[in-house]
Amino acid sequence: MTTATTSTTQPGRRSGREPLLAVEDLRVTFGSRTSRTVTAVDGVSFDVAPGETVGLVGESGCGKSVTSLAVMGLLPARGAQVAGSVRFDGEELLTLSPQRMAEKRGAEMAMIFQDPLSSLNPVVPIGVQVTEVLERHRGMKGGAARKRATYLLERVGIPDPTRRLSDYAHQLSGGMRQRALIAMALACEPRLLIADEPTTALDVTIQAQILALLNELVSESGTALVMITHDLGVVAGLCSTVNVLYAGRVVERADRHPLFATPRHPYTGGLLASIPRLDEERGRRLVPVPGSVADNIPWEEGCAFAPRCPNAGDRCEAETPALVPDRGVRDPRLLRCHYPLAGDRTEEDA
């Protein structure tokens, strides 16, 4: 089972900064007692402090979106069992009434999604969708709301915002749509923003612009940001702390720089090796993580990553590794691995 020690040895925890969001031992199971259940999130813990950007990284299906939906209280009431604890500014969210939760969403916490086109209502103009949020949480009406909406669109870099208010989603470019969604999410200056693969549907140059915009807005306003991605390259410029997820569990957590310098989990190593780098010679073959999630074994029986792991040894399929502080590196780090990659700390250091 997961260790309870995670929150005490939290890498990236700045002294004196209380976490705004504290997720502890979050567990999400789909399916009823009668049918086969799927555990999408299996004891995930992480913290985010105000002004901090925390990354959740992992490949498709590892439970990133389900984690964020659970935090936002957006999972279907029937069909999904959520356990553990999600505290926002000290308040437990998982037991909050749906009404109270809806009041917080959009006002104190907001989320942006992967596909900007399908996340916008196709038959309602952008402006109405922005003012709707202002009306809901700020009680703003008419001219005041429109003025604020215009300002917001301008703030996220949409040219000619007054005219764009009456545009429909299909009249905007992909990048503009994501900007409009960011404007909606930030309309009421939330203290927490969850971005679920906000750039996956965009082309590379637009990706960089959107990431820069998010970075700017967040550092300016002190918003806590949870950045969800399958691409460590996105994390590189943004996150202070990175959580690497595999099959619903955190397998490695570290501050960004040490993680990139000395990945310890073979899965992190694989992810890093598959990022294209500008400083490397061209034509180098990108090494993806071999195999797919279909090869997983259940965490109960050992390490889920073992069948795909280049370092796998005898213990991996016999004993479930725990997420424990890693003594093989100088930085504070949590690691779930029996046979990690080489660290930067030798026996003499210890």
């Binding site: 969403r105 999604f113 709707e132």
Partner: peptide, 17 residues
């Protein structure tokens, strides 16, 4: 179950709206 309804719910939009 569409994305834009999920996105609207993520902004706290009231059920009637």
């Amino acid at each position: 179950h569409s994305d834009h309804v999920l996105a609207a719910r993520a902004l706290g939009v009231r059920p009637a709206a």
